[in-house]
């Protein structure tokens, strides 16, 4: 499978990561923030998949299994994130992260 256009795929995942990071840095809505995080995370997962396909063989299997595990992690993370959204909403009456400044001393 060496004929795959690797640079194009890496470019795609880099673009996804950039979009995710942009969302993380600019969004103030917690849910949109979570979506941005998901996008960034999927860029990572996509990388594992490309390289597994690129390498092939048993080594490729390792990459694919990690990708599957990461999809599970992403699901868990969203579950936790949504729980925080609920808690935040209950506490502050809003899900705007700019108003949750309790981390400040």
């Amino acid at each position: 499978m060496t004929d795959l256009p690797l640079v194009g795929f890496i470019g795609l995942s880099a673009a996804l990561l950039a979009i995710g990071l942009f969302g993380i840095l600019t969004r103030r809505n917690f849910i949109l923030l979570l979506i941005a995080i998901e996008i960034a995370m999927n860029a990572t997962i996509l990388n594992f998949v490309y390289f597994a396909a690129y390498t092939g063989g048993t080594a490729g299997l390792t990459g694919q299994s990690i990708a599957v595990v990461l999809v599970g992690f992403a699901a868990t993370e969203v579950a936790v994130g949504l729980a925080i959204v609920l808690a935040l909403n209950r506490l502050k009456g809003t899900i705007n992260v700019a108003q949750a400044t309790e981390l400040k001393l």
């Binding site: 840095l25 992260v97 700019a98 949750a100 400044t101 309790e102 981390l103 400040k104």
Partner: peptide
């Protein structure tokens, strides 16, 4: 030290 998560992310 703003306390805003996205700042820390930045």
């Amino acid at each position: 030290q703003s306390g805003v998560v996205s700042d820390y992310a930045a």
